[in-house]
Computed example of a mutant assay.
Amino acid sequence: MAFGIICLLVAILSALGLFRELKNKNFFAVGFAAVTVAVFGWFSVMTIFSYIVRGGGGAM
């Protein structure tokens, strides 16, 4: 569960950076921030979902 929360925090911070760099029109940084939000957001959602559905998040 801790891994899901850490990934969620990284995704939130990356989303903030994404909007800041969009305002600055730095599209190289926007690309990296968007990929980071997508990857870490996906990992966090799936980790938390797995923890809720499987009840403990352990290996199968």
Score class of each variant (00 low, 15 high):
residue 32 F to M: 11
residue 13 L to Q: 02
residue 58 G to E: 08
residue 53 V to C: 04
residue 57 G to E: 10
residue 16 L to H: 04
residue 51 Y to S: 07
residue 41 G to A: 14
residue 57 G to F: 06
residue 34 A to L: 15
residue 50 S to E: 09
residue 2 A to C: 12
residue 53 V to Y: 15
residue 2 A to F: 14
residue 59 A to I: 15
residue 42 W to E: 13
residue 13 L to C: 11
residue 18 L to F: 14
residue 58 G to Y: 14
residue 5 I to R: 09
residue 37 V to M: 07
residue 6 I to Y: 01
residue 48 I to T: 10
residue 49 F to M: 08
residue 46 M to F: 14
residue 50 S to F: 13
residue 42 W to Q: 11
residue 27 F to C: 08
residue 50 S to I: 09
residue 2 A to K: 11
residue 10 V to D: 02
residue 36 T to Q: 02
residue 12 I to C: 04
residue 13 L to P: 01
residue 33 A to G: 05
residue 14 S to H: 11
residue 13 L to M: 08
residue 31 G to P: 09
residue 14 S to E: 08
residue 53 V to T: 09
residue 22 L to P: 00
residue 43 F to N: 04
residue 12 I to A: 14
residue 34 A to F: 13
residue 7 C to Q: 10
residue 4 G to F: 06
residue 22 L to M: 12
residue 27 F to N: 07
residue 48 I to Q: 01
residue 22 L to Y: 07
residue 54 R to L: 09
residue 42 W to L: 15
residue 18 L to K: 09
residue 41 G to N: 09
residue 50 S to H: 12
residue 58 G to C: 10
residue 48 I to M: 14
residue 58 G to K: 04
residue 47 T to W: 02
residue 40 F to C: 05
residue 13 L to D: 02
residue 5 I to P: 02
residue 9 L to F: 09
residue 9 L to S: 13
residue 51 Y to E: 14
residue 2 A to D: 04
residue 37 V to W: 02
residue 59 A to G: 09
residue 19 F to E: 00
residue 5 I to G: 02
residue 25 K to V: 04
residue 47 T to A: 15
residue 23 K to Q: 09
residue 39 V to F: 14
residue 45 V to G: 01
residue 18 L to A: 04
residue 58 G to R: 07
residue 40 F to N: 06
residue 47 T to G: 08
residue 18 L to E: 08
